[in-house]
């Protein structure tokens, strides 16, 4: 499928803005991108289909995202002293499905993650965004799926949204 280039451009712009919000630790603005029942999901397995009967690295609704973003700003969040810094590059943005109610966007990412006194960590994988809304200005995230290339590996802790 070759999507409308303007629509692809708008989708890429949407993802770039989302990346900017995350790298800027603007959690509340980022969370506002989600639909009311939108989910943020980082599977534990490659090709994982089921987030309910199988563990995940993250599977967070609005309530759990709210706790995470508040915790990151808590004075006594010991593992955020100092805070996690990230810079990410999002590319290979493609609209892979589209209907009257929304679209599915696939992309690849590289995230460099760093905390003072800790090793810098490189994360990589693919994003799949299910966006609902009929026009770019109305898009909301119904599902953000983050497939890490090392999802089933040995992990250091994750703190911020990927």
């Amino acid at each position: 499928m070759i999507a409308d280039p303007l629509l692809t451009h708008a989708a890429a712009d949407y993802l770039f803005r989302e990346a900017e919000l995350l790298d800027g630790r603007r959690w509340e603005d980022w969370d506002a991108l989600f639909a009311e029942d939108g989910m943020y999901w980082v599977p534990l397995r490659h090709d994982q289909q089921d987030p309910l009967n199988h563990a995940s690295l993250f599977y967070e609704d609005a309530i759990l995202r709210d706790v995470r973003r508040r915790r990151l700003e808590e004075k006594h969040a010991w593992s955020q002293q100092p805070v996690t810094r990230t810079a990410r590059i999002v590319g290979n943005v493609r609209i892979v499905a589209q209907d009257g109610e929304g679209l599915r966007v696939r992309s690849a990412f590289q995230i460099s993650e760093w905390r003072q006194g800790r090793d810098q960590r490189q994360l990589a994988g693919h994003y799949t965004h299910d966006l609902v809304g009929t026009a770019p200005g109305e898009w909301r995230i119904a599902l953000k799926r983050v497939d890490l290339i090392n999802c089933d590996g040995i992990q250091d802790c994750y703190e911020v949204f990927l």
Partner: peptide, 28 residues
């Protein structure tokens, strides 16, 4: 399945490497 799904929810929240609880343990 509903019972098991709650077990999974506990795994995700308390024992995942992304747990908002466990990160502070691992830090200390």
């Amino acid at each position: 399945d509903a019972f098991f799904q709650r077990t999974i929810s506990y795994t995700n929240i308390v024992n995942s490497p992304s747990s908002t609880v466990m990160v502070d343990d691992v830090e200390v």
